[in-house]
């Protein structure tokens, strides 16, 4: 599904290499986790895959089902099936959450040559999915993420994911700022979306999220590279011994 080969990325504004040859393949139906110390390049990877400005790919490729995504505009990547759940979801005053989601869903449908959903049909689906995530009607009416608590923002990200039904879901530190209950709710939302034709890349600093979203494969990232790959037990090792041992072992 998602194939990253030898990806090198530097910051556009300064001569600073962040990713130094990332190789990673996420198969359809699988959940891959990327763990690593702060500054290892985890978030950069998520931004580069979703098309944020400010990064320059100096070498390597990233394809989704064979399509080169690095050349696409962010909206084209979204239509192709890439979804990034933001670490810090953005507040947009003046744009209603519902309007935002309907615009996004219909823009993607249009890009794929599908008919747009009517307001009524959209409302029906969004209400159903919102309920599962304990998102109330008020949160749907309010401007996007404005005045939302940390947990509400993250649940709102998962709701968008549920509405957009992407092929490749990238979750960037989705557990940050969440208490245990909120994390469970978010994880349940993600788990409900697990499907044979959908891949997940879960980026996290801590192991605790992976108790709830159990990964098939765990990668450790350090200094812009994947330095170790293993099963869920690798996450437990990190929890027990920290990153220092793993990173040193490789270095």
């Amino acid at each position: 599904m998602l194939e990253i080969k030898n990806l090198h990325v530097k910051l556009e504004e300064e001569d600073k290499q962040i990713l130094k040859g990332v190789d990673l393949t996420v198969e359809a139906g699988k959940v891959h986790a990327i763990m690593g110390p702060n500054g290892s390049g985890k978030s950069t990877l998520s931004y580069v895959l979703s098309g944020r400005d400010g990064y320059e790919v100096t070498d390597g490729t990233a394809t989704l089902n064979g399509e080169d995504i690095l050349d696409m505009e962010p909206e084209e990547r979204a239509a192709a099936g890439v979804f990034l759940a933001f670490q810090y979801p953005v507040e947009i005053p003046g744009v209603g959450n519902m309007t935002f989601m309907r615009t996004a869903v219909n823009a993607q449908r249009k890009a794929r040559g599908q008919d747009e959903l009517s307001a009524a049909d959209f409302l029906k689906v969004v209400r159903e999915r919102a309920k599962e995530l304990k998102i109330d009607a008020d949160m749907l009416k309010r401007p996007v993420n404005v005045g939302f608590s940390g947990g509400e923002k993250k649940r709102n990200e998962i709701l968008q994911m549920a509405m957009l039904e992407p092929k490749m879901c990238i979750l960037d530190e989705t557990d940050s700022g969440l208490d245990v209950d909120a994390m469970k709710l978010v994880a349940d939302g993600v788990n409900a979306l697990r499907a044979p034709d959908r891949g997940f890349l879960v980026i996290t600093h801590y192991q605790r999220l992976l108790d709830h979203i159990v990964p098939d494969v765990v990668h450790i990232m350090s200094n812009g590279r994947i330095v170790k790959t293993g099963g869920p037990e690798l996450a437990l090792e990190v929890e027990k011994n920290g990153y220092a041992d793993l990173v040193e072992e490789v270095a």
């Binding site: 505009e73 979804f83 005053p93 989601m101 869903v105 401007p143």
Partner: peptide, 25 residues
């Protein structure tokens, strides 16, 4: 905000229009 909207599939010009309307709202 523009990137956030685009990352959800909203084309750049539509996203800008949405932000313009939001500003005037």
């Amino acid at each position: 905000a523009l990137f956030y909207l685009r990352s959800r599939g909203v084309p750049e010009q539509d996203a800008k229009d949405l932000l313009v309307l939001a500003f005037l709202a």
